[in-house]
C-alpha cells in the first residue's frame, strides 16, 4: 500500500479532530479531540519513517505518546477542578474572562 495514503488519512484525522475541538462544548471531548490530533501526528511520523527509511519518526512517536500521557494527566486535573467548582464541563460556561 502506498504510504502516502497514511498521510492522507492522518490529515483527515487531524482535520476531523480539529473541527471537533471547535464544535464540541464538552471539555472532555474537546480534550479527546486534541489527543486525536496528536495521534494523527504519530501516524504521520510513522508513515514518514517508513518513507524516508529511518527510524527517527517511529521513535519520535513514542516520545509523543509519553508527552500525550503527561498532557492527559494535567488536562484531566484541570477539567476535574473546573467540574468540581462549576458542576459543568462545558467549555462555553467558562467565559468570565473576556473583552
Amino acid at each position: 500500500m502506498n504510504p502516502e495514503n497514511y498521510l492522507i488519512l492522518a490529515a483527515i484525522l487531524f482535520a476531523i479532530a480539529a473541527v471537533g475541538v471547535l464544535v464540541r462544548r464538552n471539555a472532555l471531548i474537546a480534550f479527546m479531540c486534541v489527543e486525536l490530533m496528536l495521534n494523527s501526528c504519530n501516524l504521520v511520523l510513522a508513515a514518514f519513517a517508513q518513507m524516508r527509511g529511518n527510524l527517527d519518526g517511529q521513535v519520535a512517536a513514542f516520545f509523543v505518546m509519553v508527552v500525550a500521557a503527561a498532557e492527559v494527566v494535567v488536562g484531566l486535573a484541570i477539567v476535574m477542578m473546573i467540574y468540581r467548582t462549576r458542576r459543568s464541563t462545558s467549555v462555553d460556561d467558562a467565559n468570565l474572562l473576556k473583552l
Binding site: 480539529a18 475541538v21 480534550f31 486534541v34 488536562g75 473546573i82 467558562a94 468570565l96
Partner: peptide, 18 residues
C-alpha cells in the same frame, strides 16, 4: 477566574501544540 484561565490556556495550548 483562575481556573477558567487554566482551562483556556490548557485547551488552546494543547490545540496549538498539536
Amino acid at each position: 477566574l483562575s481556573q477558567e484561565a487554566a482551562l483556556k490556556y490548557f485547551l488552546l495550548g494543547a490545540f496549538s501544540s498539536a
